[in-house]
Amino acid sequence: MQLAFVLVEPKVPENVGAAARALCTMGFGELWLVNSDLHTRPEAHWLAHGSDHILGNARIFPDLTAVRNSVDLLMGTSAKPRHHRQDWHQPAQLREIIAGKGASVATAALVFGREDRGLSNDELALCDLLTGFPMAVSYPSLNLSQAVMLYAWELSGLALAPTEQSRPEATDARLGALRQRLETLLPELDAPSDGKLSQWVFERLPLLTERDIGFAHTLCGNIERKLRESSSSDQQAPFR
């Protein structure tokens, strides 16, 4: 599994350099930036201290939607749960969730918002799940590079090299493929118009283990086959 750390429109180049240093010390190498070139600023390199290669190899995306389309699992950081979502997890819980994905997730990304206002509601809606640190005081947030360091420490060891299990043949069994399958399938099942069934499904989807994801793919395949058979039977039925 490849685990990327994504900074959305950071404002301070020193934070970008310090984030790169934090990733390097914890064994991570994927730093992605959204709509930013701060990794090229001298101030970023001043604080990188031996992690200039991470800044040099940083991937740049125009927006978070482009990141969403490039990963199987997208995790957003938020100081607290938003809009009645039940999928807010502390970092230790997040580690367990990621570790259980196995080959079903080729690439996961952890997203950090802007220093002054975090992630927008629309950006949070793109995320499969949300995560945050419980605070001992009511102070609203951590410094960006501090947050990256804490998560990198908690998740250290999950930046694994590709294995036989993650070969391309396993693509159809991945979490991202299951999400796309359900986005097509749920409307065909006449899900309630209020969207509560879809919300329930997609909030719990990222929590599935690799084995569960395989079972869910099998279940979707069986439902799809039944729907095709039903449709074919309706088309072939004689007029009465």
Results as ranks from 00 to 15, higher is better:
residue 50 G to F: 04
residue 30 E to F: 09
residue 3 L to Y: 07
residue 115 E to K: 06
residue 7 L to C: 06
residue 35 N to Q: 13
residue 194 D to K: 04
residue 4 A to K: 03
residue 115 E to N: 00
residue 122 D to V: 13
residue 44 A to R: 05
residue 98 I to Y: 06
residue 69 N to R: 13
residue 103 A to Q: 11
residue 63 D to S: 12
residue 125 A to F: 14
residue 54 I to F: 09
residue 29 G to R: 14
residue 34 V to Y: 02
residue 214 G to L: 12
residue 138 S to C: 04
residue 209 T to R: 06
residue 181 R to E: 14
residue 157 G to S: 07
residue 79 A to R: 10
residue 145 S to E: 01
residue 134 P to L: 12
residue 205 L to Q: 00
residue 221 G to R: 04
residue 31 L to E: 04
residue 92 A to T: 14
residue 233 S to W: 13
residue 81 P to V: 12
residue 83 H to Y: 13
residue 186 L to F: 00
residue 16 V to N: 01
residue 191 A to Q: 06
residue 83 H to V: 13
residue 48 A to V: 06
residue 76 G to A: 15
residue 89 H to C: 10
residue 205 L to V: 02
residue 123 E to L: 09
residue 151 Y to I: 01
residue 65 T to P: 00
residue 191 A to E: 08
residue 109 A to N: 10
residue 234 D to R: 13
residue 15 N to R: 08
residue 51 S to A: 15
residue 56 G to F: 11
residue 142 L to I: 04
residue 121 N to C: 08
residue 178 L to K: 01
residue 15 N to F: 06
residue 72 D to P: 02
residue 234 D to Q: 14
residue 239 F to A: 15
residue 5 F to Y: 02
residue 235 Q to A: 15
residue 108 A to E: 08
residue 221 G to W: 02
residue 108 A to K: 07
residue 111 V to A: 10
residue 169 E to M: 07
residue 63 D to F: 11
residue 194 D to W: 02
residue 92 A to K: 14
residue 83 H to R: 13
